[in-house]
Write a protein that binds this DNA or RNA. Sequence first.
DNA 1: TCTCTAATGAGGTACGTACCTCAAATCAAG
DNA 2: CTTGATTTGAGGTACGTACCTCATTAGAGA
Lengths: 340, 340
Amino acid sequence: MRPTIKDLAKEAGVSLATIDRVLNDRPGVKEPTILKVNQAIEKIGFVRNIQAANLARSKSYKFQFLLPQSGGAFRKEVINRIEEANASLAADAVFAGSAQIDVNDPHVVANYLSSLKSDDLDGVALMVPESPQVRDATSRLSERGIEVVQFLSGQPKASTVDFVGVDNHKAGSTAASLIGRFLKVSSGKIMVISDTMQSRDALERRLGFDETMDEEFPEFYALPSLETYGNHERTSRVIKQCIKNNPDICAAYVMSSEAESPISEIDRLVGPGKLVLIAHERTAFTEQALMENRTDAIIAQNTGHSVRSAIRIMKARCELRKPFASQETIRIEILLKQNL
Amino acid sequence: MRPTIKDLAKEAGVSLATIDRVLNDRPGVKEPTILKVNQAIEKIGFVRNIQAANLARSKSYKFQFLLPQSGGAFRKEVINRIEEANASLAADAVFAGSAQIDVNDPHVVANYLSSLKSDDLDGVALMVPESPQVRDATSRLSERGIEVVQFLSGQPKASTVDFVGVDNHKAGSTAASLIGRFLKVSSGKIMVISDTMQSRDALERRLGFDETMDEEFPEFYALPSLETYGNHERTSRVIKQCIKNNPDICAAYVMSSEAESPISEIDRLVGPGKLVLIAHERTAFTEQALMENRTDAIIAQNTGHSVRSAIRIMKARCELRKPFASQETIRIEILLKQNL
DNA sequence: TCTCTAATGAGGTACGTACCTCAAATCAAG
DNA sequence: CTTGATTTGAGGTACGTACCTCATTAGAGA
């Protein structure tokens, strides 16, 4: 049996009331007494029974994921995983929901974050691009007792904010490696397609991609990034233009999380399976493209795992525990037709 | 607030005692009353507060992983992950440990399983080859109230036993696909090295490997499996022999979970990085081999995830809940230097 | 109708912790 | 030594459930 506060009180030679004051940071305990209690905690290895504590204070956890309004299939996937996590964690009295706002307007995001109150929310996971306003708003959130994690996008800035997601530099690097190894031709050009190159995520992927390409496969030349701005019309135009200007394209790297438009366009223009093609994120579309050999590999992060990881981190922080880091690393997954 | 048994009693128009009898399957309740209570449960959406229930019955969970005595680096990895899970789950009153026995002797395994008592153990995860004896022993375990999952090896037999681990057929298939795509030569032979071909896992990997090889890369020929029996001496001999007999070997698939011996031998005989080489399981050795380009890819399963998944499944079964299947799928991971 | 049993109700204690009140002890300053 | 504040102790109730005992009620059989 694990020691309880009674055992602790006996060991420390104080009353239960004092133990309670120390454990819950209540005032009115002299420094030497606190020390005595802490030593006793060490000695008998007391660990608070969180279930009992939560029961006593009828505590439940509420977490919210802040997602972009746009984002197509991938965003849908994230929402599904959040709902799933919510269902499976209901028994542990943790609730997870999501909200969708215009994440590209820092003002909107900052306003939204300011409106959150620690009464009805214990933590927020932000899938939001970085900006000074957002950074300030998150700092203030932490101060108000709402835990914050960066979710799948951005990078950890404040040391009080954990980051859940993959290393995009490595993801780009992985894409380059796969393309280089899959290509059977001896030279050629590689088309790189992105939503936008404004975001840090995209930049890092590109950096990683170029680095590995240059180092390990100098026989191939990666073209400048095509930006689609999420616009189908534009996507079609820039890809057509690029193919026309570069007849020796042998591969394509679709960096954007919305892969449908670019891949369909490439298929239409050069025929399915003609290029080595790597895309990001697992969605119904990319899965099918993989099965039909229209895509060679998908680089993905396990969305469900990411969601649960974010929740675990927020919960651990609420309970002033350290999350187990090794469990919380999000792997860069390589998906082929065979291991879908 | 979630409804409690009091709300439930009010809704069903019975007393708390009756609610308790129904919820805990105690005798002495008429069928129509049980029905009334169950309807009330449905109606108000009552879910038992498991934390409170566990607190009340001072319940903690104890799970054990049954591992092979041998197994080198990979077994070490599994043990580490179990210890880690144990540490991080202590707060939830679940304890996980491991035991190592001679899993290849069905008699030893069956005896061991028979000796387990539900007083001190709630569940067992078996990393044990299949055999009729073991199957019987697991059935009896279930009957005695100890939950069982197959862990990383074997296949689900009894419907009461879940399987945690990857689909080995797909894993072999994935290896074949990678080799086929990585090879730049137009034809050649592929060396396949296994610990033993007796185990179902190895057989399935080989089947998947051959299937994909035949279908997608008929220009390459996969040689018969070399069996090392975990013996370094023998490993060296059979590989040397194989290379001598087949000068046109262009790739190697190391199926066994102990990859060090075969890879070192191949390096010694044909030079590091000369063949396209795929191995299984992430260990310190395979990681380093990957970094040094002595291996092209590792096919792995996330050990930590597998361990936690097994624990979650056993716990869910103890609580008569259904585990969330999608969370419990173990992915076949492809590891390159870039996404380690 | 009486009797016996099965079904149900009422009430308690316990689990480990939080949080509250009030009394008692301690201590420093005057 | 008194005063007042600070520190500590003692005891209670609560959270939601399990599990126990005992009393009461309903229903069936004679």
